[in-house]
Amino acid sequence: MKAILPRTNNANKRYLHSIIAGLILLLTFTGFAQSYYLKSVFGGDALSILLHIHGLVMTLWILLFMLQVLLIATRKQVLHRRVGLWGMSLGLLVMLIGIATAIDSARRAQAEPGGLSFLATSLGGLLVFFALITLGLIYRRQRDFHSRFMLLANLSIIAPAIARLPLDVIERGGLSLVFIIKDVCVLAFVLYDLANTRRLHPATAWASLLIIVSFPITRMIGALPIWIDIAKWLVS
């Protein structure tokens, strides 16, 4: 027998998702303003072609997510589905370009402490993201599952933007603080979903758990000698 989930307030859900999408867009711009969007103002070393492609693809993905949320909020479901089919191709491109960029960054940072270890976290985060958008595609006909998988997929990739926020507390806190902040954002959505439905939705439960445990697991993997050997082979 299928579990019967409580109905949610669709108006509140569309409103919340629009706010989250807007905040992700704002966070992305703020975090990458100095190093990418407003680089001509702040200066610094020129970006490689790969980084330009990565920045463009990620920007298109975040804008697509914002568009898709707005299409649902304005009840344009048919157009939302049509755009979504194209969007999955972009999601695959996000992962592939992300992998290439992560390996390139590790190649340039391999002489630094933890340079090769962090590659496990970078690649692990990309796999989590792609797993969630794939689940979103599989469950595209079940809106309650689809919307949660897609929203949490986008929350899963906000760590790089958080790490680049021009705040001293972020710089002092380091990598652990960045992922704690990301996890807090995920848990905030979990608590809202729980309060709104009176029952934790399985998509929210499993997706949020995957996001939260991925960081400590990939950190442990990154410290293994066998991973260092694999990472050296990847960057060679």
Rank of each mutant, 00 (worst) to 15 (best):
S147V: 09
I99P: 11
S48K: 00
L116K: 13
L191S: 09
I62A: 13
W206H: 09
V94M: 11
K232T: 13
S156N: 08
R198F: 01
S208I: 05
Y192N: 12
I181D: 02
L79H: 09
I211H: 03
L16Q: 02
R198G: 15
R140H: 03
R14Q: 04
R219P: 01
I158Y: 07
R219D: 04
G84D: 03
A159M: 10
Q34I: 15
I230H: 00
P225R: 01
I226N: 08
A100R: 11
G115E: 03
A102K: 04
H201S: 06
A163I: 00
L132N: 07
L123R: 11
G87E: 06
M88K: 06
N196I: 08
N9R: 03
D104W: 02
S48R: 05
F118Q: 15
T74E: 01
K182F: 05
G87Q: 01
G125V: 01
A207L: 08
H146Q: 06
L38K: 00
A159Y: 04
I181G: 00
I133T: 15
D183L: 01
L116V: 12
I24V: 15
W86G: 10
N9G: 06
M220Y: 08
A111V: 11
K13D: 10
P6M: 05
R143E: 10
L200D: 05
N154L: 09
Q34N: 14
P113I: 11
I20F: 03
G55N: 02
V69Q: 07
S89Y: 09
A163R: 05
T28P: 02
F65G: 13
L63S: 11
R82G: 06
V213P: 01
L155F: 00
G125R: 03
A3I: 09
I221K: 12
R198A: 10
G125W: 12
L177P: 09
D183F: 12
N154I: 03
G174W: 01
M58A: 10
K2G: 09
L187I: 14
R219M: 15
S89T: 11
F118G: 10
W86H: 03
F129K: 07
D229V: 12
Y139E: 12
E171A: 12
A46G: 05
L93G: 13
W227G: 14
I212T: 00
V235F: 01
I19L: 15
Q142C: 01
L209T: 04
R198D: 02
S105E: 08
A106P: 07
I24R: 02
A100I: 05
M88V: 14
L151D: 03
I212W: 07
L165S: 07
I19H: 03
G136K: 11
L92A: 10
A205H: 02
L119N: 06
Q77L: 02
T74K: 02
L200A: 13
T204P: 08
L137S: 04
R107V: 00
G98H: 07
K2N: 05
A73S: 11
A100Y: 11
L85S: 00
G98C: 01
A21V: 03
V184W: 01
D104N: 15
S236R: 07
R199G: 01
A188N: 04
F42H: 11
L177C: 09
I170R: 00
L187V: 14
